[in-house]
């Protein structure tokens, strides 16, 4: 057996003692500012990110990426981790589950850096404390939505909504919630053979069966062969929160609260 050198001995002892020998520097973007990489990043963004963040990255359902502010951290390594691993509990998938290579993710980040500008003044509107009071009180949001373990189950859990929705998207989804729904929350009315109608949100479906949560928060399972009809609603179970239900100022408060989550 070969003798251990002093150097390897030192490493063994160091590891055993839990001594970090060298602080690994946080990786930085190897293609920062590289014109070709930025071009490639733009192409990747358009194909993979624009559906949620918008073609101009100003935010659709997903947040605005042009403000220079990133909730999960804005350093190169933090952005790399967010893009690669996604954000659990949100719609943000991880590039590691696609065919994306690390080089492509760095190119994407190089492109995002070219978009960064000042935070929107719109973001600063409203009062989060008032918004929280409205959420659980007058606006009755909490009857269907849960925040950190409190509230209803029929609508999506909003505990992390501030990470995943832009202010613009939230305004649209509160004022006119119908149109587009998150998976697991498509509104349906099930009509049984004897004409009974059960309203709820679709949890899953295949050609033969349907699983819903009804408006009493009960999970129910049906075979299509036992049903007369499944009505796929265009209108959300959530009412439109027009100015009669929520003034512009109150809406600003609620959104400020949601953006703080």
């Amino acid at each position: 057996m070969r003798k251990l050198t002093w150097w390897t001995m030192a490493i063994v002892i160091g590891l055993a003692a839990g001594v970090p020998f060298a602080q690994q520097p946080e990786p930085t973007n190897p293609v920062q500012g590289n014109a070709q990489a930025i071009d490639q990043g733009q192409q990747l963004f358009r194909l993979s990110c624009a559906s949620c963040h918008g073609l101009n990255a100003k935010g659709l359902r997903g947040p605005d990426l042009t403000t220079g502010q990133f909730v999960r951290g804005g350093s190169d390594s933090q952005l790399f981790r967010t893009v690669m691993q996604g954000i659990p509990g949100t719609d943000m998938p991880g590039a590691q589950f696609s065919d994306a290579t690390p080089d492509q993710v760095w190119a994407l980040i190089a492109y995002l850096r070219t978009l960064s500008g000042p935070a929107s003044e719109e973001e600063a509107r409203g009062n989060a404390q008032n918004g929280e009071t409205l959420f659980w009180g007058k606006a009755t949001c909490g009857q269907c939505h849960m925040v950190r373990g409190r509230g209803g189950r029929l609508g999506p859990d909003l505990s992390r909504i501030g990470v995943t929705r832009s202010r613009t998207a939230l305004i649209k989804e509160i004022r006119t919630p119908s149109g587009s729904f998150t998976d697991g929350f498509w509104p349906v009315t099930v009509v049984s053979r004897d004409g009974r109608r059960i309203r709820g949100v679709r949890k899953n479906e295949d050609p033969f069966s349907l699983q819903i949560m009804d408006t009493n928060e009960r999970i129910q399972s049906f075979d299509h062969s036992d049903l007369r009809e499944v009505v796929r609603e265009k209108s959300s179970l959530m009412p439109d929160y027009g100015a009669d239900r929520l003034t512009d100022a109150e809406l600003d408060d609620v959104i400020r609260y949601l953006r703080s989550l």
């Binding site: 192409q43 990747l44 194909l47 073609l55 190119a107």
Partner: peptide, 14 residues
């Protein structure tokens, strides 16, 4: 070596 698409595709909401 770079993706060569020259466009984007969006799903129709709803």
């Amino acid at each position: 070596g770079h993706l060569y698409w020259g466009g984007a595709v969006e799903a129709i909401p709803g």
